[in-house]
Nucleic acid binder design. Structure first.
Lengths: 136, 136
DNA sequence: ATACTAATTGATATATAATATCATTAAGAT
DNA sequence: ATCTTAATGATATTATATATCAATTAGTAT
């Protein structure tokens, strides 16, 4: 199935690159309709998946939340704030052979792993109250 | 807010312990209605959350899938099969100071981390075709 | 340039997972 | 036995994402 170049697809890609803080599909949609008011939300979802498969962007499947999309640059993982639910970048030194720490998975082919840290972000520590409304 | 003991709550707890392979809320509901046909699905969801908060069971928020519930015993993480989506236990040796590998998270209080490995399970390697219908 | 064909789109319906609402019930204390 | 309020059951609602399908359009072949 050959991939064609469409203005919708490149608008979505541009939006992900421009927002570049792990935007959700909805946030990306909101950004795109400004320049292209007729785009369908389904098209945004479709292109986010397509672009992920093409390796142009990175899809982050967040436990307990909407998927987020990132322009893939350096290797990093993420930390999710328990209080406000926001997601932050975490630079991490190469974890040498994490696979070697594993037992009892005979017969599995590993393709990778996601580490999502949990914690309380500086803002929430300060205010110590829930700020769900302040999401990303 | 004091917690009361109800038959619904203990039935949900029993089901999680009995199924003990990371059942979803739906699967737990299916197990409970056999003995208690009038239980509401909302009650199952509510009790799964309550029991998690109480520390009686462990909630696993799976990226790209429904939450799963486990009776918490030894320390382990999970591997999700890319092909069939099933989730398997992974025993893992203590990863000493994973937090120490992290940079650029000044001001965060860490509470923990989830590692979800990705890979192809033995079954899918054998059949090499999608088996989504075989979902745990 | 014109025609072809299949990928893509837009609009909508559907699916799935989970929470919110609210009147009723019942657990545990007095 | 009575009281208080946590918990339940039924249902509606929210959120996220995919499926469907006719219409459009990108890229190729003529």
């Amino acid at each position: 199935m050959m991939k064609r170049k469409t203005i919708q697809r490149s608008l979505v890609l541009d939006a992900v690159n421009k927002l570049h803080n792990h935007a959700t599909a909805d946030e990306i949609y909101d950004a795109v309709i400004i320049e292209h008011p007729n785009i369908s939300k389904a098209t945004v979802y479709r292109n986010l998946n397509t672009l992920s498969e093409m390796g142009e962007i990175r899809k982050l499947e967040i436990p307990g939340g909407a998927d987020r999309y990132d322009h893939c640059t350096h290797n990093h993982c993420h930390i999710k704030c328990d209080k406000c639910g926001r997601l932050f970048d975490v630079d991490i030194d190469y974890i040498s052979g994490l696979e070697n720490n594993i037992r009892d998975t005979r017969g599995f082919d590993f393709t990778g792993y996601d580490i999502i840290f949990r914690g309380t972000c500086p803002d929430c520590k300060k205010h110590s109250m829930s700020q769900k409304e302040k999401d990303v």
